[in-house]
């Protein structure tokens, strides 16, 4: 860890949640910590309420899908401490069968629509969310379109020669 703030936050996290921190790295200056899914609410609550870390702002919440790995779905949180201007990234990974994550709406009201969007596109269920329905896609859609098993183009099309361009 090159950044002092990153080092401090990581130390604090390890001190309190030693077993739940799976890995940590620093990429392009931002601390990126992978934690266990069951503790995500407690960790974010700690990061928000602890006076030393004080991550008072939820910048972003989104999902990701790695179909080839065992824990294929993931949620990525970007938190921001306005007082020290410090950002960190938290990640959790889990399998599609177990896609239930604790909602953080009661910590950050802004998480409401971000979680709905993540549910809409990845089918990740947020436990305790007040209104977990689709937000951008239509209500009766059956799939979660940002998962990798749903290709962008209609696979029944015959007029495109993939052999030529390989994509």
């Amino acid at each position: 860890m090159e950044n002092e703030l990153n080092k401090k936050v990581l130390e604090q996290l390890i001190k309190v949640f030693s077993d739940d921190i799976k890995s940590a790295e620093e990429s392009y200056g931002m601390l990126s910590v992978t934690v266990s899914k069951n503790k995500i609410y407690a960790i974010i609550k700690f990061l928000k309420e602890n006076t030393e870390t004080n991550f008072n702002f939820l910048t972003d919440l989104t999902g990701i899908h790695y179909p080839d790995s065992k824990e294929d779905l993931g949620v990525i949180y970007h938190l921001h401490n306005f007082y020290k201007n410090h950002r960190i990234r938290l990640k959790i990974f889990f399998s599609t069968q177990d896609s239930y994550v604790d909602s953080i709406v009661d910590l950050y009201s802004g998480a409401n629509w971000m979680e709905r969007e993540t549910f809409d596109f990845f089918g990740i269920h947020f436990k305790g969310h007040p209104n977990l329905t689709r937000i951008l896609n239509m209500e009766d859609m059956l799939i979660h379109p940002l998962r990798k098993e749903f290709p962008l183009e209609d696979q029944s099309r015959k007029d495109k020669n993939d052999a030529m361009f390989g994509r």
Partner: peptide, 30 residues
């Protein structure tokens, strides 16, 4: 690699979260 970059858009913090797997297109862009 993965990178989060933000600029001050006219309406606020406009962020790009880009995950690249080394290919010609982003693996994930939010």
């Amino acid at each position: 690699g993965e990178v989060y970059n933000c600029v001050e858009g006219a309406n606020g913090e406009l962020g790009y979260y880009l995950v690249s797997d080394g290919g010609r297109t982003p693996y994930r862009l939010h």
